[in-house]
Design a protein around this nucleic acid. Sequence first.
DNA 1: GGTTTGAAATGATCGGTGGTCAGTTATATA
DNA 2: TATATAACTGACCACCGATCATTTCAAACC
Lengths: 222, 222
Amino acid sequence: MNSVVEISQRARSAEQKAQRRQGLLDAAETYFLEVGYEAFSMAQLAKRAGVVKGTLYLYFKTREELFLTLYEQSLIRWGEVFTGYLSGSMTSKVYAKTLYSTALADGSFLPLLIRLEHVIEHNVSIPRLIMSKRVFIDQVEAIAHPTSTSLKLSKVQAIEVVKLMGVLLIGATRTDQGPSLDNEELPEDVQNLIASFSSEPLFVKNAVRLIEGIRAETTPDI
Amino acid sequence: MNSVVEISQRARSAEQKAQRRQGLLDAAETYFLEVGYEAFSMAQLAKRAGVVKGTLYLYFKTREELFLTLYEQSLIRWGEVFTGYLSGSMTSKVYAKTLYSTALADGSFLPLLIRLEHVIEHNVSIPRLIMSKRVFIDQVEAIAHPTSTSLKLSKVQAIEVVKLMGVLLIGATRTDQGPSLDNEELPEDVQNLIASFSSEPLFVKNAVRLIEGIRAETTPDI
DNA sequence: GGTTTGAAATGATCGGTGGTCAGTTATATA
DNA sequence: TATATAACTGACCACCGATCATTTCAAACC
């Protein structure tokens, strides 16, 4: 027997509906990876997913709620990959490099994270927003635990580190989100500027500074 | 005599055109401060500015180019305010607090900065983009000079600090850009989360860590 | 001072957007 | 096999950013 529940035409059971929803999300992510956030249109997604636009709105209240769901899934996915790389003991530099490379390797995570607060979270219901924040809290804790081990930090410090890495990641990878200017049509001064914002060293160097800063602040016993 | 050049109906001279352009920018900024980036529409702006939509496109090639111009003006304006507060000698903490409060006080600057690379810079011509990058370079240098004095850093270090402050500012003020959730309808765990991302201490504390990190790395003479 | 002229301003128009909803139809159940 | 239900459809809405042939005004010229 085929264990996959066929969705011949209509998803009736909760299981089928969940499956169809995930199918739409998968199509959305593939499409998103191709065209990016701004060029992403619900009509096009519907076409690619083989449904009609109205159907999308049975599964997602708004375009932004769809993206919020994609964000959550990418956050969880990245968290699993990243923590999978964490070992019992790491230098802050290796930790930072691992965090950076895994985050970038997931094509969806950063572009969605960057747009989270000022685009996606608007046009989403408050209850849905609360759900999403809880997913975030859970992920921070899930990542903080092995971080604490790897970096030999207290739990509180590890949580601070994980949150801070997010803050830095967003700031440091901004340049990557600009229009692609591979061409050498850029004058030298502008090329130098862009080079000085190269995200990998920018992130790693300052992640280390921050982690070591936190480590150095360990309060002596009263 | 009225020194203001009246624009009765049509701006003919270069001076009048510059004036009308600035008038449109002023109207745009006022409107932007009211409704934010996403709700801002060119048709509404036209109405408020007393022109027709097509006219806007005589002065700005695209919506994004208009915003890029607003961004540049806000960057320059903030830079002047901030450097005006810098004194001959400051602790890194006072420096960071001053930078933070002046940046936030300018209602336009941060919301535009946050959207710069991933929204505004797309849909702008390459030459215009190059112009804009040069404005940025100039501003970094203009701010780095008094920074170098205030924090007793080398020129190179001061430039790194200024660029880093931008990176951190964007990451640290993200939460402020989310939907306003003043209401106490939020459960405690989510309220705690939001509190833990409170941007002022987040920025100041880590700005200090980074500045002191840079200062500590002063290479000893070879 | 009347006429020419060219550019500033207009407004109708375009293709496309996110979102809605009355109506259609497949399917689980009785 | 008939019926009730809800998944799905597709036409429709208001609005968006952007375009461009046409109109209109003010400066330049004779």
